[in-house]
């Protein structure tokens, strides 16, 4: 579980996050949604320590992440996996080397044990046999899956996904969503996903936080989304005319 308390972040005179408090629960897919510029990516980068908050607290379990020194931060990060928007796979390494990199760096496994673990992770993301391919030789969806494999190779307790479906077709997006959801449930991971994808919201949104202009505008789950009277949420979720028509059809409105 990750708790944030009154998190503020400013860049110069611009206050991007204006005092956000929220809890990201373990074993659930916690979604951060909101329009572009709402502060989602900044919040995600604060959670993983790539930015330092201007004020506020970030609690990983019983540890206040903000007060740790760089060595202690690195120890927490050993429990963290992250899937980047652009996958961030190392171009000069094969799929196998990419996934094995955290093991090479931090584990005392033998070469055989590492290979078994890499193969298990590849199997988990349905990419068996892709070991020797380079990132440039596989599709965007496959790159995302390799990114997921790399992020789970050290059995993380916390998984962060920045726009996991961006640039993917709807079918591949569903595969990625289902994969993230099942990994979260299997290992009781605290998963935080930053997304614009409405399908993700409705399919895997166990705990949804809507950000609007740096403030928390709404919190709920996928069942509560359709029933909510929150104007900002409705404006965001039903921004597309197609979804408005679907909603109207479902509620009998013309």
């Amino acid at each position: 579980m990750i708790r944030i308390k009154d998190i503020k972040k400013s860049f110069g005179d611009v206050e991007v996050l204006k005092g956000i408090s929220h809890t990201f629960e373990a074993g659930k897919t916690n979604l951060i949604i909101g329009r572009s510029g709402a502060g989602k990516t900044v919040l995600l980068k604060l959670l993983v320590g790539l930015f330092a908050p201007t004020s506020g607290e970030i609690w990983y379990g019983d540890t206040n992440f903000v007060q740790l020194n760089s060595r202690q931060v690195r120890e927490i990060r050993m429990k963290v996996g992250m899937l980047f928007q652009g996958s961030a796979l190392f171009d000069s390494m094969t799929v196998e080397q990419n996934i094995s990199f955290p093991l090479d760096m931090f584990s005392k496994m033998t070469t055989k044990e590492k290979l078994d673990r890499v193969n298990y992770c590849l199997e988990r993301v349905s990419l068996e046999g892709a070991n020797d391919k380079y990132p440039s030789e596989i599709s965007g969806g496959m790159q995302k899956r390799v990114g997921i494999a790399r992020s789970i190779v050290l059995n993380p307790e916390f998984l962060f996904c920045d726009e996991p479906n961006s640039g993917l077709d709807p079918k591949t997006s569903i595969v990625i969503d289902e994969l993230i959801k099942s990994i979260t449930l299997e290992n009781n991971i605290t998963t935080v996903i930053n997304t614009h994808d409405m399908n993700s919201v409705m399919e895997i949104g166990d705990n949804i936080a809507l950000l609007h202009l740096g403030e928390l505008a709404w919190v709920g789950n996928k069942e509560e989304v359709l029933e909510s009277d929150n104007d900002l949420l409705k404006e965001f979720i039903f921004a597309s005319p197609f979804l408005q028509k679907l909603r109207n059809a479902a509620t009998g409105k013309m």
């Binding site: 320590g49 790539l50 760089s70 690195r74 120890e75 990060r77 963290v80 961030a88 190392f90 171009d91």
Partner: peptide
């Protein structure tokens, strides 16, 4: 720029 350094940082690499 390709976020490789961020990816390594999050893995715990100095």
């Amino acid at each position: 720029q390709k976020e490789h350094i961020d990816a390594m940082e999050i893995m715990g690499v100095n």
